[in-house]
Amino acid sequence: MNSFRFDPVELPDSALSFRHAARSFLADELAHERFTPHRNSWGTYDADFSRRCGQHGFIGMHWPERYGGHEASALDRFVVIEEMLAAGAPMGAHWVADRQSGNNILANGSEAAREKILPQIAAGECFFAIGMSEPNSGSDLASVGMRATRADGGWLLNGTKIWTSNAHQAHYLIALARSEPLGEDRHAGLTQFIVNLRESEGITTRPIYNLYNSHDFNEVFFDDVFVADDMLIGEEGRGWQMVTGELAFERSGPDRILSTYQLLRQLVDAVARKAESRDRIAVGRLIAHLVTLRQMSLSVAGMLERGESPELEAAAVKDVGTAFEQEIPEIARLLVDVAPSLDNGNPYAEALGKGMLSAPSFSIRGGTREILRGIIAKGLGLR
């Protein structure tokens, strides 16, 4: 029977240097009022901030130099991301490309794709969207219906993707499609493709507005969209292996525990001014959970640094981490008598309002709770 492995990780000296560099960069950004701290920084979009991150070497940090990277470790990147998220920096433009799409291309893409795309990502000038979910599939990726059929020099994609964050602004999207008819093995016959959203013909993007009336999500329609052979990721028919490896990056990082961190900071300050000990106990419990989750997330980063594939541990971090993120607005609402708002100028009220409206989606994005627990149960040999 398998078991979880969350071995302790000690940060190298280089990580401390990168932490200092990130803090100095962010302090300068704030001093010059180049950004306002956001409530959910990796869900924001600021192309200019991403370019400045690229200029300072904070994107594609651990990639080879020939692709624009700096050959830092995954642990070096971890501390930089922590600092960015803690500061509320607007990372959303380059987030997907840096977190997972670029890593997928580096590991499984063609040399032509690596040389063309990775340096642009590292420079903060190339942004990606995720083409996994579909209207009738949700988190059951093995049931995707997008079709990929052979064409002269490449493939034609037909189908629909949904909940595609920033597809209306991204340069590329990695699409999971069925390149062979569905057989007994639902995981076979799937392939990933890099789609140029800016230049490809046959793509229609329709906005989906969320609860706070922001246009983050999209529905994307593909009508005979051509993708050249050198934009295929990995081997034809092995898309399931590619996508599960990619999801380990998506599910395990500090973004899965720090989405409502700005609200937690405000809550700590508010409760510190109160004499009620029970309130302090509740906040202390949240902080203890955060410390534990950080150690789990850091352990997964260590596994990725060693070249391992911690899909099971990543699923656990995502499941427990998003439950923690959802708990913060609920506790904050009960402990401090402030009405939530999005625009009344009260930092606590605005952080609470954004957290309450955002939190329901946390346990859906990156895989629903039911899917994640199924992965965990199967990995532990419980089913």
Rank of each mutant, 00 (worst) to 15 (best):
R280H: 15
V144N: 08
S361Y: 15
E111T: 12
H32I: 04
K354S: 15
Y67A: 01
F193V: 00
P64K: 12
M91H: 11
A170N: 13
F249H: 13
P119M: 04
L157G: 06
L263R: 05
H62G: 13
A151H: 08
V271R: 06
A151F: 03
I328C: 09
A188Y: 12
V320P: 08
V268C: 14
M91A: 14
S165Y: 07
L357I: 09
D48F: 05
L357Y: 11
I371D: 13
S50P: 11
G131M: 08
W155Y: 10
E199Y: 13
D224N: 13
G159Q: 03
A142T: 04
D255P: 00
I105T: 07
G345L: 04
R278H: 10
F217E: 12
V336P: 03
G109Y: 02
S139W: 01
F127D: 14
S297L: 04
R178W: 07
F35T: 02
I371A: 11
Q100K: 05
R34A: 10
Q241K: 08
L176H: 09
E125G: 11
P340S: 00
D48M: 12
L197Q: 10
K318T: 01
P90N: 14
S73E: 13
R238L: 12
A47R: 06
P37S: 05
L258C: 13
F362Y: 14
A72N: 01
T160W: 01
V291D: 10
A107M: 11
F222A: 03
H56F: 05
R178L: 02
R5A: 13
A123Y: 06
R66P: 03
A359K: 03
G57C: 07
E236D: 06
D152F: 03
W63A: 10
T191G: 14
N136P: 02
V271K: 08
D343A: 08
G234I: 11
I208P: 14
G353M: 00
T149D: 15
D140W: 02
S341V: 01
G54D: 14
T368V: 02
A22N: 10
R19E: 15
G366D: 12
T244G: 13
A167F: 06
R294E: 15
Y209E: 05
Y172L: 07
K378Y: 04
F78V: 00
V227F: 14
S17V: 12
H171R: 04
G60F: 04
M91K: 07
R365C: 15
W63C: 08
C53V: 11
R51P: 02
A248L: 03
V243A: 14
M231E: 07
W163I: 13
G159W: 00
L264H: 12
R365N: 15
A248P: 01
F249E: 05
P12V: 02
E311R: 00
D98S: 09
N213C: 01
A27C: 13
L263P: 00
K354A: 15
L380T: 12
L141N: 10
T204L: 05
L267P: 01
M296F: 02
L380R: 02
V96P: 02
